[in-house]
Each structure stands twice: as structure tokens, then as C-alpha cells.
Write a protein that binds this DNA or RNA. Structure first.
Lengths: 167, 167
DNA sequence: TTATTATAGTTAGCTGGCTAACTATGTCAA
DNA sequence: TTGACATAGTTAGCCAGCTAACTATAATAA
């Protein structure tokens, strides 16, 4: 999702404030920056994964599978844990099946469903990517000391909790 | 883009750390939370705009047009300022054209291009949405005092700047 | 003037979000 | 037991992101 790259400067904000009395410039700037930074962090991750021939959505699915002791779970569990719809998960799974990173197992207990299991190729791909990923995350987050990060996160969470005002 | 909803707990992190020595749990948790919160804030905005019958990408385009003194600009300018490709902007513009929120003006100066202008219907839609949007942003960001927000933003920017480690 | 390089916008194809509708199956209440 | 309701997964259609390739045009160098 597009988040504005060219953020409004003082002139633009003034223009909008003249028409819309509700403008609070600081709030707007802070908000738009947070949105934009979120996009850019995600884009960085995209680009990194692309160097390993992986797409982000599919990679999260591999990770969720690896969490399981038997490397196996159902599409609806994957959808719930990732936070996407079952329809979306259906597509992600199909991509991974095509690439041979997961395999399909027909359900026994519930005939409406099936399971997917991380394959050896899938595990190998994670073994290739995750060390690199973790060391980079560590380095990036190292820009700020842990305690400050805790505080940062708490503040972001406060904002997120307030986001119900958009409901 | 999916950002993980079910974030790893201590057990999961331990499992991954046993296999990948590079894991720094705090960094991972902080990072994943930031990504997730970015997604949720954007989703909130999506839902809000939907109540006004608007899609987020298109709405940003309307805003960019409103910035201009003549409410007019070119597709490539819109693409550059929003941070998306020209191909993507082509689609966004077509949607807005269909809805009559913008109108197309053939280019005079450069025959490779054309301009798009915010229509009265487009301005009316913004006039409907923006007061509501601004007051909600103000309320949401009010969860944290301005000075703390400044600090929060500086820290996020530090992280963003470090995100080149993913390159 | 001509050829090369750059640019504006579009299309095709891939990706991945959504909702609504659907089929198949499971659960629960009467 | 039967009907109503719920659930798992898929499909269609819309949305919006990308790249590569394309056409048309503009700018620049020779």
C-alpha cells in the first residue's frame, strides 16, 4: 500500500489548514512519517528476501510452518496466525506448492481441510535465509539501545491502540 | 503486505535460536512489532476511508492534486511524489477517472504526457473526508505528547536509516 | 540533420490483499 | 433424525504493488 513519499511541508500544511480547521500539523506529520517508515521497512525486507529468491508473504508461511513440531499445519491456522484471509492464504500456499517448498497432506480428522508441511527444500531455504535475516535485524535494531526500543515500542502501541478512533 | 499477526513467543524464539545462532530475541520482537503496527495503522486508515467510499491509494492522489494551485499535475509527478511506479499510478488514475473525481487534460507542452485535474466532485469528496480524517489523526496522535512523539519519530528514523543493512 | 539516449505513459504478467459467493463438511438445536 | 447454523477452502472480481517491454515523444551528441 502506497504511503506518501513526498510528505507535506509547512506550505502544504498551511494550505490544508486554511481549508480544514481540524488540521494539527504535528500530528499529521508524525502520523504520515510513521506510515511511511513502516512501508520502507517492509520494502527493505522485500528486497532482501528477493536476493534469496523469496517473496515476503510466502516466507512468513514457511516460518509459521517451521514453528510446528511436525512442520505441519492447516491453511486456516496459517491464515489466522498471519492475519490474512483464507482466500489470500490459499494463493500463498499454491505458490509455495508450485515451488516445492511445502507439500500437501490430505486431512484425516476433518474432511473439509488438509494440511501443509514444510518440505526439505523449504527447510533448506529457511536455513539459507534466516541466519542472514537475523544478523541483519540485529544490526539494524542495534541503532537504538534495547531499553529505548522498549519505550519506542510502548509508544507505538499506544498510538495503535488509539487507532480505533478511525473506526 | 502481510506482517505477522501472531508474533513469536519465548518458546518459538528459543526454538529458532537453537537452530540459528544469530537470533537476538529483543531485536526480532521489536522489529516484528514495528512492522505489524505499521500494517495495522494502515489498515485502520483503509477502513476509515472505506466508510467514505474511498480507497487509500486513490485518496492520496486526490490529496496530491489538491496541493497544486491549479489542482493539476502529471501522472509521473504523482508517481514520484507518492513513491509508486508510473505503471501503478496509471491504474490509480484510471480508477479516479472512472469515478469522476479527476479529469484528464491533454498535454500541450509535452506530447508524451497529459495532465489530470481534481474535479469539483473530487474536491467535494475531499471536503467530506479531510475534516473527519484530521480530527481523528489529531485524537490518535494525542495519545502521546508532542515532544515524546518527536523523539519517537527520530528513533524510528534511525532504524529506517539502518535498514540499508538489508541491501 | 541523424542517431543515440532518455523520458512519459501503458500493457502484460506476476504478486498478494480483500469480499462475496460457493461447495463440502461439521456441529448443534429441535 | 432433520434442519439450521458454522466452518474450511476455493473462486471470481476488484484492488494495487512490481518489472519488463512497448510506443511515442523529447533531448542530446555527433
Amino acid at each position: 500500500m502506497l504511503q506518501l513519499k513526498d510528505l507535506p511541508d509547512a506550505k502544504v500544511l498551511r494550505k490544508f489548514a486554511e481549508r480544514y480547521a481540524e488540521v494539527d500539523s504535528d500530528s499529521v506529520i508524525h502520523y504520515l512519517n510513521i506510515l511511511r517508515i513502516g512501508t520502507e521497512l517492509s520494502d527493505s525486507l522485500d528486497r532482501f528476501l528477493a536476493t534469496h529468491g523469496l517473496l515476503q508473504g510466502r516466507w512468513w508461511v514457511l516460518i509459521l510452518l517451521m514453528r510446528e513440531d511436525d512442520l505441519t499445519t492447516t491453511p486456516s491456522e496459517l491464515a489466522d496466525k498471519s492475519g490474512v484471509s483464507r482466500a489470500t492464504m490459499s494463493g500463498l500456499i499454491n505458490g509455495l506448492l508450485r515451488d516445492g517448498l511445502i507439500a500437501r497432506q490430505e486431512g484425516d480428522v476433518d474432511r473439509r481441510s488438509y494440511s501443509v508441511k514444510l518440505t526439505e527444500a523449504g527447510q533448506a531455504k529457511l536455513d539459507e535465509v534466516m541466519p542472514d535475516y537475523y544478523s541483519r535485524v540485529k544490526k539494524m535494531m542495534g541503532a537504538i539501545p534495547v531499553q529505548q526500543r522498549d519505550n519506542l515500542l510502548m509508544q507505538l502501541m499506544l498510538i495503535k491502540e488509539q487507532s480505533h478512533v478511525f473506526d
